[in-house]
């Protein structure tokens, strides 16, 4: 069973539907006991960084997530949920993140021909081969975002080219994150969710 963290941060139903389609058990929850019983955690998120982290802090979910990850439980952050894993973000001010992966979330600079947000399908370039997600090499996944994670290449599994190199999937121990929306990325996106549930979580 995977816990999809329910903290009023955008549409989590589409993510739940994708897991349902794959016949993988998930529960939408903000309950500490339920999260503790689950074998893995999924942190979704759509919208702005500041209200999302404030919400996690106000509900104590930030501490629960940190404790669980520290105890070795695998986690998958998606879109804003991935950005929250980093140290900080500069979206509308400076905000502290969960600090689970070293790096900062920063805004795209406006460059001619590259509209912000990046919205659409972009092609993954594989940087690391020692992980269960190497099938992402050269595959297109679906992005909608105006900020990106600036982090050391050692944490980057795949990146996409959008005037600059943008981390698309990141990893730090058993903590994973996708900037793209696997639940909107067709077959390969479903494969990301299935791989996290079946390979990362069950082997943890």
């Amino acid at each position: 069973m995977l816990a999809i963290i329910d903290y009023d941060a955008g549409n989590t139903y589409n993510l739940k539907k994708a897991f349902d389609y794959l016949q993988l058990e998930t529960v939408l929850t903000a309950d500490k006991a339920v999260i503790e019983q689950c074998q893995g955690i999924v942190l979704p998120g759509v919208g702005a960084f500041a209200p999302a982290i404030a919400n996690l802090q106000a509900t104590g979910l930030d501490q629960i997530i940190k404790q669980q990850v520290k105890a070795g439980k695998p986690l998958l952050g998606i879109c804003l949920g991935m950005q929250l894993l980093f140290d900080s973000s500069t979206e509308y001010g400076w905000h502290q993140g969960l600090g689970l992966i070293p790096g900062q979330v920063v805004a795209f600079e406006n460059r001619p021909g590259f509209k912000v947000p990046q919205m659409g399908w972009n092609q993954n370039e594989l940087l690391q081969s020692q992980n269960p997600f190497t099938f992402l090499a050269d595959e297109y996944t679906y992005f909608v975002h105006s900020y990106y994670a600036n982090c050391d290449p050692q944490y980057i599994i795949t990146q996409v080219d959008y005037a600059i190199k943008v981390p698309a999937m990141v990893k730090c121990g058993k903590i994973y994150g996708t900037q793209f929306h696997p639940e909107k990325s067709g077959q390969v996106g479903l494969q990301v969710l299935a791989t996290f549930a079946k390979k990362v979580v069950t082997s943890a």
Partner: peptide, 8 residues
């Protein structure tokens, strides 16, 4: 549709 189709 969104239970069976995973695209924008």
């Amino acid at each position: 549709v969104s239970r069976q189709v995973f695209m924008p």
